[in-house]
Amino acid sequence: MSLIGEERKDYILNQLNLEGKVKTNDLVDNLNVSSETIRRYLEELEEENKLKRVYGGAVKINLSRDEPSHLKREVLHADEKRKIGRAAATLVEDNDVIFIDDGTTTLHMIDYLLNKKNITVLTISIPALYLLIDYKNKELYSGDIYLLGGKVNSMHSRVTGTLAEKMVENFYADKAFLSVDGLMVEKGITGFDEEKGQLTRQFIKNAKQSIVLSDQSKFGLVQFYKIADLKEIDIIVSDAAAPKEWEDYLVKKDVTWIAAQ
C-alpha cells in the first residue's frame, strides 16, 4: 500500500475508530513500512493528542473513564450535536409517542420538534423537561410531556434508578432516541453509568424503533456498561458516514445509518 505520511496517519486513526486499538505489527504489514516508521507516526499522533501509545501499538484516547457533567458535555462537539439533533427530529412524525434519552445530543432534537403536531415526549432529562415546558408555555409546543420519575442525579441533570425503570415499563413508544458513550460493531453501544444504561435498555425494549444519536468521537470507544448490541438498533444518526468496514455488518443486521448534514 503506497500512501504518503498524512494518508498513513489517517489510516491509523480510521483503524482506531473501528477497533479502538491498533498493533504496530499489523500496521507494518498493512502499510508496508518499517516498524520505526510506524512508531514515528504513533509518536506524532500522540503529540497531537489523537491517540495514546501502549506497548505494541496504540489505543484510542479516552481522557476519562468517568462521565463528564452535563455542563461540560454541552460544549463538547456542540456543532456536530446540533446537526445530529436536527436530522433526528426529521424522523419524528405527527402523533408520535417518543422517548428522549438523557444527553446533550438528544437535547438538540427538541428545538426542531416545534412544527410537529400532537407529539408526546417521555424523558429522564431535566434540561429536556425545562426546555419543553418553556416551549409549551410560549405555545410553541402543544404535545404532552412526561418526566419519568426517580432518583435525581444532580451532576448529570437526569433521573435514574429502579423507580424510573418501573415507570418506563408502563409506557410504549413509537420511537426511542438514545444517547451513548461508546459505539463499536463488535461491542455494541456502551455507557459510563449502569443505572442510566439500564434505562436506555428499557427504552429499546418498549419502543417500536430504536434510534442512536452519536457523534464520531464515540466511534471505537467501549465504556463500562454494555447497553445493547448494534443489531438491536434500527437507526444510527451521526455527523459522519459509517466507517466503510462497518457497512456490511450494518446491512446484514438491517441497521440504517444517517449522516447528518
Rank of each mutant, 00 (worst) to 15 (best):
158 R>T: 11
158 R>L: 04
158 R>I: 00
158 R>A: 03
158 R>C: 05
160 T>P: 00
161 G>T: 01
161 G>A: 00
163 L>R: 02
164 A>Q: 12
164 A>C: 15
164 A>I: 06
165 E>G: 13
165 E>R: 13
165 E>T: 06
167 M>E: 12
167 M>A: 07
167 M>W: 04
168 V>W: 15
169 E>C: 05
169 E>F: 08
170 N>K: 15
170 N>Y: 07
170 N>A: 09
171 F>Y: 15
171 F>K: 09
171 F>A: 10
173 A>G: 10
173 A>S: 11
173 A>K: 08
174 D>H: 10
176 A>K: 04
176 A>N: 12
176 A>D: 12
176 A>L: 04
176 A>R: 04
178 L>G: 09
178 L>I: 15
178 L>M: 13
180 V>L: 10
180 V>N: 06
181 D>H: 10
181 D>G: 15
183 L>G: 04
183 L>Y: 07
183 L>A: 06
183 L>S: 07
184 M>F: 00
184 M>S: 07
185 V>Y: 01
186 E>H: 11
186 E>D: 15
186 E>C: 02
186 E>N: 13
187 K>E: 14
187 K>V: 03
187 K>I: 02
187 K>W: 03
188 G>M: 00
188 G>N: 02
189 I>V: 08
189 I>Y: 06
189 I>H: 03
192 F>V: 12
192 F>K: 01
192 F>R: 00
192 F>Y: 15
193 D>G: 01
193 D>M: 01
194 E>V: 05
195 E>L: 01
195 E>M: 01
197 G>T: 02
197 G>I: 00
197 G>H: 00
198 Q>F: 04
201 R>V: 03
201 R>S: 07
201 R>P: 02
202 Q>A: 11
202 Q>F: 05
202 Q>M: 14
202 Q>E: 14
203 F>K: 10
203 F>I: 07
204 I>G: 00
204 I>H: 01
205 K>I: 13
205 K>W: 03
205 K>Y: 10
205 K>D: 04
206 N>M: 11
208 K>M: 09
208 K>N: 14
208 K>T: 08
209 Q>N: 14
209 Q>H: 09
210 S>L: 06
210 S>T: 01
210 S>C: 00
211 I>H: 01
211 I>L: 03
211 I>S: 01
212 V>D: 07
214 S>E: 10
215 D>V: 08
215 D>H: 11
216 Q>D: 15
217 S>E: 14
217 S>F: 14
217 S>K: 12
217 S>T: 15
218 K>H: 13
218 K>D: 15
219 F>L: 15
220 G>S: 08
220 G>Q: 03
221 L>F: 11
222 V>C: 11
222 V>R: 11
222 V>W: 11
223 Q>W: 03
223 Q>A: 04
